[in-house]
Simulated assay, not measured.
Amino acid sequence: MAVENAKVLIIVNNWGIEETELTRPLRDLKATGAQVTLAATTLDPCETVSHDRYEGETLTPDARLADVQAADYDLLVVPGGTCNVDRIRVNEDAIALTQEFAHEGKPIAAICHGAWLLVNAGLMAGKTASPCRYIQADIENAGGHYEDKPLTVDDANGWKLITSRKPDDLDYFVDAIEKALA
Protein backbone atom coordinates (compact mmCIF):
# COMPACT_ATOMS: atom_id res chain seq x y z
CA MET A 1 0.00 0.00 0.00
CA ALA A 2 1.21 3.52 -0.74
CA VAL A 3 0.63 6.36 1.70
CA GLU A 4 -1.49 8.13 -0.92
CA ASN A 5 -3.90 5.16 -0.91
CA ALA A 6 -4.05 4.85 2.87
CA LYS A 7 -7.12 5.49 4.99
CA VAL A 8 -6.29 6.98 8.37
CA LEU A 9 -8.66 7.52 11.28
CA ILE A 10 -7.93 10.15 13.94
CA ILE A 11 -10.13 9.95 17.04
CA VAL A 12 -10.72 12.69 19.62
CA ASN A 13 -13.06 14.10 22.19
CA ASN A 14 -14.57 17.41 21.10
CA TRP A 15 -12.55 19.49 23.53
CA GLY A 16 -9.06 19.65 25.01
CA ILE A 17 -7.06 18.15 22.13
CA GLU A 18 -3.44 19.32 22.00
CA GLU A 19 -3.54 21.42 18.82
CA THR A 20 -0.35 20.36 17.04
CA GLU A 21 -0.77 16.71 18.02
CA LEU A 22 -3.96 16.75 15.97
CA THR A 23 -3.22 19.23 13.20
CA ARG A 24 0.28 18.02 12.23
CA PRO A 25 -0.66 14.37 11.57
CA LEU A 26 -3.97 15.43 10.00
CA ARG A 27 -2.45 17.93 7.58
CA ASP A 28 0.82 16.11 6.89
CA LEU A 29 -0.96 12.87 6.05
CA LYS A 30 -3.50 14.67 3.87
CA ALA A 31 -0.59 16.36 2.06
CA THR A 32 0.80 12.91 1.16
CA GLY A 33 -2.56 12.01 -0.37
CA ALA A 34 -3.83 9.82 2.46
CA GLN A 35 -7.56 9.87 3.13
CA VAL A 36 -7.87 11.13 6.70
CA THR A 37 -11.07 11.03 8.74
CA LEU A 38 -11.41 12.99 11.97
CA ALA A 39 -13.93 11.26 14.23
CA ALA A 40 -15.09 12.83 17.47
CA THR A 41 -17.52 12.05 20.24
CA THR A 42 -20.13 14.27 18.56
CA LEU A 43 -20.33 16.27 15.34
CA ASP A 44 -19.86 19.50 17.30
CA PRO A 45 -16.68 21.46 16.53
CA CYS A 46 -13.44 20.08 17.99
CA GLU A 47 -11.77 22.72 20.14
CA THR A 48 -8.02 22.32 20.49
CA VAL A 49 -5.71 23.81 23.09
CA SER A 50 -2.03 24.61 23.26
CA HIS A 51 -0.20 23.25 26.32
CA ASP A 52 -3.54 22.14 27.82
CA ARG A 53 -4.63 25.70 28.58
CA TYR A 54 -4.41 28.19 25.73
CA GLU A 55 -7.18 28.32 23.15
CA GLY A 56 -6.24 26.71 19.85
CA GLU A 57 -7.75 26.05 16.47
CA THR A 58 -11.27 24.69 16.04
CA LEU A 59 -11.83 21.88 13.54
CA THR A 60 -14.97 20.23 12.21
CA PRO A 61 -15.11 16.45 12.62
CA ASP A 62 -15.96 14.25 9.64
CA ALA A 63 -17.76 11.58 11.65
CA ARG A 64 -18.85 10.46 15.11
CA LEU A 65 -16.89 7.76 16.94
CA ALA A 66 -20.04 5.64 17.07
CA ASP A 67 -20.29 5.67 13.26
CA VAL A 68 -16.78 4.48 12.26
CA GLN A 69 -15.23 1.03 12.31
CA ALA A 70 -11.68 -0.28 12.13
CA ALA A 71 -12.41 -2.39 9.05
CA ASP A 72 -12.63 0.80 6.95
CA TYR A 73 -9.19 2.15 7.90
CA ASP A 74 -5.51 1.20 7.74
CA LEU A 75 -4.20 3.06 10.80
CA LEU A 76 -5.52 4.78 13.94
CA VAL A 77 -4.09 8.02 15.38
CA VAL A 78 -4.82 9.12 18.95
CA PRO A 79 -3.66 12.70 19.65
CA GLY A 80 -2.94 13.87 23.15
CA GLY A 81 -4.21 16.68 25.26
CA THR A 82 -4.80 15.77 28.87
CA CYS A 83 -8.50 16.67 28.86
CA ASN A 84 -9.09 15.09 25.46
CA VAL A 85 -7.68 11.71 26.40
CA ASP A 86 -9.01 11.75 29.96
CA ARG A 87 -12.51 11.80 28.43
CA ILE A 88 -11.95 9.59 25.39
CA ARG A 89 -10.29 6.82 27.42
CA VAL A 90 -13.60 6.11 29.15
CA ASN A 91 -15.68 6.37 25.96
CA GLU A 92 -17.02 2.91 25.08
CA ASP A 93 -16.92 3.60 21.32
CA ALA A 94 -13.28 4.75 21.48
CA ILE A 95 -12.26 1.74 23.56
CA ALA A 96 -14.02 -0.74 21.26
CA LEU A 97 -12.59 0.92 18.15
CA THR A 98 -9.05 0.82 19.53
CA GLN A 99 -9.45 -2.85 20.45
CA GLU A 100 -10.73 -3.59 16.92
CA PHE A 101 -7.63 -2.00 15.35
CA ALA A 102 -5.33 -4.10 17.55
CA HIS A 103 -7.29 -7.32 17.05
CA GLU A 104 -7.22 -6.77 13.27
CA GLY A 105 -3.43 -6.26 13.43
CA LYS A 106 -3.61 -2.66 12.27
CA PRO A 107 -1.17 0.02 13.48
CA ILE A 108 -2.09 2.46 16.23
CA ALA A 109 -0.19 5.73 16.72
CA ALA A 110 -0.60 7.59 20.01
CA ILE A 111 1.21 10.73 21.10
CA CYS A 112 1.62 12.23 24.57
CA HIS A 113 -1.40 11.28 26.73
CA GLY A 114 -2.93 9.35 23.78
CA ALA A 115 -1.57 6.06 25.12
CA TRP A 116 -3.95 6.40 28.09
CA LEU A 117 -6.68 5.13 25.77
CA LEU A 118 -4.67 1.96 25.14
CA VAL A 119 -4.34 1.43 28.89
CA ASN A 120 -8.12 1.55 29.33
CA ALA A 121 -8.59 -0.65 26.26
CA GLY A 122 -6.42 -3.33 27.88
CA LEU A 123 -3.82 -3.25 25.10
CA MET A 124 -0.58 -2.24 26.85
CA ALA A 125 0.47 -5.61 28.30
CA GLY A 126 3.72 -6.67 26.66
CA LYS A 127 4.08 -3.42 24.68
CA THR A 128 6.86 -0.82 24.90
CA ALA A 129 5.81 2.82 24.56
CA SER A 130 7.12 6.39 24.79
CA PRO A 131 4.15 8.51 25.89
CA CYS A 132 4.51 11.60 28.05
CA ARG A 133 6.18 10.93 31.39
CA TYR A 134 3.01 11.77 33.32
CA ILE A 135 1.41 8.44 32.43
CA GLN A 136 4.51 6.25 32.93
CA ALA A 137 2.99 4.55 36.00
CA ASP A 138 -0.26 3.89 34.10
CA ILE A 139 1.67 2.23 31.25
CA GLU A 140 3.71 0.10 33.66
CA ASN A 141 0.71 -0.81 35.84
CA ALA A 142 -1.05 -2.00 32.66
CA GLY A 143 1.83 -4.39 31.91
CA GLY A 144 3.70 -2.19 29.44
CA HIS A 145 7.26 -0.91 29.40
CA TYR A 146 7.93 2.85 29.38
CA GLU A 147 10.79 4.49 27.47
CA ASP A 148 11.67 8.18 27.55
CA LYS A 149 12.50 8.58 23.86
CA PRO A 150 11.18 10.74 20.99
CA LEU A 151 9.75 7.65 19.28
CA THR A 152 9.09 4.01 20.01
CA VAL A 153 7.71 1.56 17.45
CA ASP A 154 6.68 -1.79 18.92
CA ASP A 155 5.43 -4.76 16.90
CA ALA A 156 4.69 -7.09 19.84
CA ASN A 157 1.37 -8.92 20.15
CA GLY A 158 0.63 -8.90 16.40
CA TRP A 159 0.10 -5.16 15.89
CA LYS A 160 2.29 -2.07 15.56
CA LEU A 161 2.21 0.63 18.25
CA ILE A 162 3.80 3.98 17.41
CA THR A 163 4.27 6.36 20.36
CA SER A 164 5.92 9.72 21.00
CA ARG A 165 6.15 11.89 24.09
CA LYS A 166 5.16 15.43 23.11
CA PRO A 167 4.74 18.02 20.34
CA ASP A 168 8.52 18.38 20.02
CA ASP A 169 8.58 14.76 18.78
CA LEU A 170 6.03 15.26 15.98
CA ASP A 171 8.61 14.98 13.17
CA TYR A 172 9.53 11.47 14.38
CA PHE A 173 5.90 10.57 15.05
CA VAL A 174 4.51 11.59 11.65
CA ASP A 175 7.48 10.03 9.84
CA ALA A 176 6.86 6.71 11.63
CA ILE A 177 3.16 6.83 10.69
CA GLU A 178 4.06 7.40 7.04
CA LYS A 179 6.56 4.50 7.13
CA ALA A 180 3.91 2.23 8.69
CA LEU A 181 1.56 3.07 5.82
CA ALA A 182 4.15 2.66 3.04
Rank of each mutant, 00 (worst) to 15 (best):
D154Q: 11
K127V: 09
R165H: 11
A180K: 12
D52Q: 12
K30L: 12
D74A: 07
H145C: 09
A115L: 10
D155N: 07
L38H: 03
D175T: 13
L181F: 02
R27T: 12
A142C: 04
T60K: 08
A70G: 09
L151G: 04
E4P: 04
A137I: 09
I111L: 11
L26M: 14
V8M: 00
T58Q: 09
V68K: 06
N13E: 06
L59P: 03
H103P: 04
A121R: 02
Q136C: 11
A102R: 06
V78S: 02
Y54S: 15
G81D: 00
K149W: 07
D171W: 13
T128F: 07
P131D: 03
Y73E: 02
A142Y: 00
L59H: 01
L26D: 00
N13K: 11
D138T: 07
D62N: 11
S164Y: 02
A109T: 14
T163C: 05
A63F: 09
T152V: 14
D93T: 08
E140W: 11
D168C: 14
V49Q: 11
P79E: 01
T163E: 09
A102H: 02
E178Q: 11
R27I: 10
L161I: 15
S164C: 10
A94F: 01
E100C: 06
I162D: 01
V3S: 10
Y73L: 06
A63D: 09
A40H: 10
A6F: 00
V90G: 09
L38K: 02
Y73D: 01
T37C: 07
S130P: 05
I111K: 02
